[in-house]
């Protein structure tokens, strides 16, 4: 945790510098009219800089109790798979349409996440979920879904 706090602290500090510079490039103050568009960004940057310095300083104290790595291999694998497959499904929407892409995503996720894989559950998910989504969002709420090459 200590190292993670130092790294995030440094990243946030860098972000605050960027926000401050952008804030300064917009106008901070207008004569009598009070704050301009750059004022709040600049204020946010100053606060963020102070807080990230506090975070970094707190890791230097000796009594920093939290030790050890908070990230597990298993957890990161889950993160990459769930986020990655969601992005891929997003990209697939342009080709196969929303309904089919979500069916594929759900089918993949249920197979990947399940403790005991059952082909029946995976296929059931791929068929039933798109149908439910179609009924709720397309029919019920009239959301125009992108259609794919299959016309779905």
């Amino acid at each position: 945790m200590k190292k993670a706090d130092q790294i995030t602290g440094a990243l946030l500090l860098a972000l605050s510098v960027y926000i401050a510079l952008t804030g300064l490039s917009l106008e901070l103050w207008w004569g009598d009219e009070g704050p301009g568009p750059g004022f709040l960004p600049f204020f946010v940057a100053v606060c963020l800089a102070i807080l990230s310095l506090m975070l970094i300083l707190s890791t230097l104290k000796k009594d920093n109790k939290v030790q050890g790595n908070v990230f597990s291999q298993e957890g990161l694998k889950l993160l990459v798979t769930i986020i990655g497959s969601s992005v891929v499904a997003g990209l697939l929407v342009n080709f196969v349409g929303m309904i089919v892409a979500m069916g594929l995503l759900a089918g993949f996720l249920v197979t990947f996440l399940a403790e005991e894989r059952k082909i029946f559950t995976s296929i059931g998910m791929m068929v039933i979920l798109p149908l439910v989504l179609y009924l709720i969002f397309r029919v019920g709420l009239d959301v125009p879904f992108p259609k794919g090459i299959l016309g779905l």
């Binding site: 759900a106 996440l113 403790e115 559950t121």
Partner: peptide
């Protein structure tokens, strides 16, 4: 749980 989570994720994205 895997099925519920898969449904919730698809639901969130749509």
């Amino acid at each position: 749980k895997a099925a519920l989570n898969a449904v919730v994720i698809a639901f969130i994205l749509v």
